[in-house]
């Protein structure tokens, strides 16, 4: 169980870290993505665009290496739940979450909710595997 827990944490950590690294290169593009959800004011969106990529990187590093993992677990769960809530409200409101501002820039239709929601649910499942696996392994060690 310990090995399974470690693998789950490493996979989850790398995923979080990669998500952060991708956004780090262009905070303005990430700001654009945040604004497509039409839920945050511009100042809050700017703060999120600057801080969230580093938070994802820190959480990813924490989960993968074990450093500060107690906090990393909660933040990973919290961030994923926030992402899911944003996606759900976007889907319910029929928002176009892909503005294409840095691509073809054409107005596209509301698509692509299924995969991000599935991905976030998989991440929550991975986190649960990590936590449960760790707990079971620790109990076995104590017995």
């Amino acid at each position: 169980m310990k090995a399974l827990s470690r693998i789950a944490y490493i996979v989850l950590g790398v995923t979080f870290a990669w998500a952060g690294v991708v956004k780090l290169s262009d905070p303005e593009a990430f700001l654009s993505s945040i604004l497509t959800y039409q839920i945050f004011g511009s100042s809050v969106a700017v703060v999120a665009a600057l801080v969230v990529p580093y938070l994802e990187l820190c959480v990813g590093f924490s989960l993968a290496t074990g450093a500060l993992r107690g906090g990393g677990r909660w933040l990973a769960g919290g961030l994923t739940l926030v992402f899911l809530l944003l996606l759900f409200q976007g889907a319910i409101r029929g928002l176009n979450v892909d503005c294409g501002c840095f691509g073809s820039n054409a107005k596209s239709e509301t698509t692509g909710y299924a995969w991000p929601i599935a991905r976030d649910l998989l991440m929550l499942a991975g986190l649960a595997i990590g936590i449960v696996g760790e707990r079971v392994a620790n109990k076995r060690e104590e017995q």
């Binding site: 600057l50 801080v51 580093y54 500060l68 107690g70 906090g71 677990r73 909660w74 933040l75």
Partner: peptide, 18 residues
Amino acid sequence: RSFKEAFCLVAIAVVCGG
């Protein structure tokens, strides 16, 4: 302890974002 660790991670992210 978890709360303090989470606070540390958030603080690092806020400083880097700043």
